[in-house]
């Protein structure tokens, strides 16, 4: 009976330990969301974007320039927070080999245009009505920004509102590979 008692206690203890291990793995285990994106390091998927001014822009036509690809929506509050930083950065990098592209997703055209009127965005902005570009880039929320280097490779993905410092850092990385340009864009 003593043995049964010990075996019972050990079984229950083992069951509890196993469940705690499972919980620990769920919380601390190697999960993909800890990495930025599985497409970082890969060539950026080509797309054609219809801009709000009626023109079209094709990613593969942008050769030899770094690209900042920013996904946003008019209802997105952090997007409004980052808008001034994006506008300031665009002006700063205007004479550098950098292209800023804003991609509006999960939105309606009127709201998007109102947003652009209020929050700037003088660089190219267009709409992705079917969400095909968003899914192609694995976008799971807004704002999300991809930094593409001059060879067309995605060097990083940033989730959340940008600041000028963050933009400088990632654009520096995207530019520094082929042009020997320093991180502040010079």
């Amino acid at each position: 009976m003593k043995i049964l008692s010990i075996v019972t206690k050990l079984s229950v203890l083992l069951a509890i330990l196993l469940l705690l291990s499972l919980l620990g793995y769920a919380i601390f285990g190697n999960r993909v969301f800890l990495k930025s994106s599985p497409i970082v390091g890969q060539q950026a998927s080509d797309f054609t974007l219809e801009l709000f001014n009626g023109e079209k822009i094709k990613l593969s036509d942008i050769k030899g320039k770094a690209v900042l690809l920013n996904f946003w929506a008019s209802w997105c509050i952090p997007c409004k927070d980052e808008a001034p930083a994006l506008e300031a950065a665009w002006k700063k990098y205007k004479d550098k080999p950098v292209v800023f592209i804003g991609l509006n997703v999960w939105d309606d055209k009127d709201s998007a245009l109102l947003y652009l009127k209020e929050f700037g965005g003088e660089y190219e902005n267009g709409m992705d009505p079917k969400g095909e570009i968003a899914v192609e880039y694995g976008v799971g929320g807004v704002p999300e920004t991809f930094f593409i280097d001059t060879s067309g490779k995605i060097v990083d993905k940033y989730i959340g509102p940008l600041t000028e410092v963050i933009i400088d850092y990632f654009l520096g990385k995207a530019l520094s590979q082929d042009h020997g340009i320093t991180k502040d864009g010079n």
Binding site: L19, S21, L22
Partner: peptide, 17 residues
Amino acid sequence: WLIWILPALALLFGGAG
């Protein structure tokens, strides 16, 4: 594999207990 095996083992040992 832990996610697949641990619940079954926990059930087994817990049930035995």
